[in-house]
Nucleic acid binder design. Structure first.
Lengths: 104, 104
DNA sequence: AGCCTATATGATTATATAGTCATATATCAG
DNA sequence: CTGATATATGACTATATAATCATATAGGCT
């Protein structure tokens, strides 16, 4: 049986990957179907599907079925705040690093 | 060269692991030396050291040397807020799950 | 029924990660 | 200098992860 620390790690792990971050960024404005998501982030359909399912089981996304299409959405809006905070931390921190940013 | 998405993923990854979460929880009240940290979280010294260094390179912790001892601290207090938000999300979410919590 | 579209999944591969044990390095005390 | 303490690191193992290609499943259309 998982304890609280493990559940917290699961949520954070679900956010902690570039492809998944791109997905969540794309879902900021509301739910989208898989067929919209994978072209938007420029990833394979199957890879996108795996990441979506992973985030669903972690409790980060919710899923709605409508005919052939499956719509995913961010389940807890607070997580958007989490990403915003992390973005700010990175931006503060980036000045103390040797390497430069590719794009903002 | 890393882009913003990758830096964000690095920070989140640094938080997304049970042993590291325990370390950060222990550092909430301020800096601690390695010799205090690893007994507190009940991990090997070498493993603890690796996690500390990992979080240092990710920009999550800062390090201060004082004689023989090395003190680590949470670098960005905002990250404590991040963990608190995630904890709340988990607590909300836990009700919709099949398994029960071991401890809070 | 047969065909299309949307999504998920099995099998595989390459790479990353967490942990352990032994050892190296650094600083201090005497 | 010697010995003790604190921290870091090399080498290794076991496990997890991300990605890909091919295929399966499911819903809708004619």
């Amino acid at each position: 049986m998982k304890d609280l620390v493990e559940y917290r790690a699961d949520i954070l792990k679900a956010l902690a990957q570039p492809t998944r971050l791109k997905i969540i960024d794309f879902l900021r404005d509301g739910e989208r179907c898989v067929c919209e998501i994978f072209p938007a982030i420029n990833e394979e359909q199957s890879n996108t599907s795996r990441h979506l399912n992973m985030m669903l089981s972690a409790g980060v996304l919710s899923r709605r079925k409508d005919g052939l299409k499956i719509y995913y959405a961010i389940k807890h809006p607070e997580l958007i705040e989490v990403l915003d905070i992390v973005t700010n931390v990175v931006k503060q921190d980036i000045h103390g690093r040797h390497s430069l940013l590719k794009a903002a």
